[in-house]
Amino acid sequence: MFDIIFSGLSSIFRYLFILLIYLFMFGIIRLIYLDIKGIKNKEIRGNTYLKLINRKDSLPFKVDEFYSLVSNVTIGRSKNNKIIIKDPYISKKHAKIIKERNQYFIEDLNSANGTFLNSEEIMDAAILKNGDIITIGSINFLFVTEQ
């Protein structure tokens, strides 16, 4: 009696197992798909962003192609910055980009090697315009704001 009930139960459960296994795989493949799609979509991140000018593979440290500037952003080598770049010529807290009344300002945070805007050193803070080139350490960023 037990055997008959069990084999019936088991035959019903096999459908459930196959369903669960395939749902699991669907979940994994979906996550991988989103992961790959996310790499492409990083290019379009808001209207204002920093674009890397250097060739990415010429740099020995990790740096992204694009950094979006949604809110106030700090750049530096230590972990509590928004944009972390492990360039030896960048200070722990190097620079800050602030948004105020639809205008973007860049401020140098007393960095050792300085921050340059269109190859001129910033003394305190400067207004950013579309197409400005920001040099931090050995990295050149293009400031882009699309309106």
Partner: peptide, 26 residues
Amino acid sequence: VNFKRPQNFLFFLNLLSLSLVILYNK
């Protein structure tokens, strides 16, 4: 929520199938 966490499916699969196996082994 379910699709974001495939390990939930794994959790249910393990629980169900192992219970079934225990039932089989009595």
